[in-house]
Simulated scan of single mutants.
Amino acid sequence: MPEDADHMVTSRKLAFGMMLSNFHHGFWSDSIYPAPQMFLLDLDSKLGMAIPAIERRAGRGETARNGLLRVIERVSHAVHDNPPDPNAHRVYWHPGEAFLGRHSQEVLAYVSDKVPDQSWGMNRESPRIVAATLFELNSIYDYSPSRQAPIFDSLDLISPNGVVLLGSGSSNSDYEDGIYLTWKGVLIKRSSGTENSWHVVYHIGYQRLFQDAKWQGVIFVGQD
């Protein structure tokens, strides 16, 4: 009986993983951008699931990723630092970090989730399950047909609750939305609204500004 029970639990996990993989593929199949790396994590155990599967092999000119267990360990550690409230019904954000082991940083977003006990295979009440996603900004840049570098030197990304996800965020409170000339170059700030907004600040050095043809036709009205 124990062997039959273990086999049943394993079969349920595989079936659940296949269902999530099919949904993930179907949801992103029409997108022009590559699908993000997603996870289901159990905060009370080491059980975790990555969708799609994580491979350490690297393409030509690429840095190999961390293995599955290492990535899940890093993501779980970040979630445990600020565990989601299951009753909050909101997305939590974690600042950019090299979760996948490459030189670039990925922004982590996660929410509290619920799955059927039979699918997860755990014989306990109300497991603390988290659904998480890693957003690889470099994969968005690299998708461009020309595969050119971003036309800015750096950016600051600040979530609505004030968490600095990328960059230093030091310029966010100093500027309203607009375009500014500073002693370092051009600063562009954009917000998604007036309250509880996302904020992004682009930093463009003068060297890039003068070399990049994309900026030749832009007229700037700014301030120091």
Rank of each mutant, 00 (worst) to 15 (best):
D81L: 14
D81H: 02
R90T: 12
V91Q: 05
Y92A: 03
H94M: 12
E97Q: 15
A98P: 12
A98Y: 04
F99N: 01
L100T: 11
Q105I: 04
E106T: 01
L108F: 01
V111A: 09
S112Q: 10
P116W: 08
W120F: 05
M122H: 11
N123F: 12
E125S: 10
A132M: 01
T133Y: 05
F135K: 06
F135H: 06
N138Q: 14
N138E: 09
S139K: 13
I140D: 11
Y143K: 08
P145C: 02
R147V: 14
R147P: 06
P150G: 01
D153Q: 01
S154N: 06
S154Q: 07
I158W: 01
S159L: 09
N161Q: 07
V163G: 01
V163E: 15
V164I: 12
V164H: 00
L165Q: 03
S168A: 13
S168P: 01
G169R: 05
S171P: 10
S173E: 12
Y175G: 09
E176N: 09
I179L: 13
Y180C: 07
L181F: 11
L181M: 13
K184A: 15
I188A: 11
I188W: 04
R190Q: 08
S191D: 09
S191V: 04
S192P: 12
E195W: 06
W198S: 05
I204M: 08
Q211G: 03
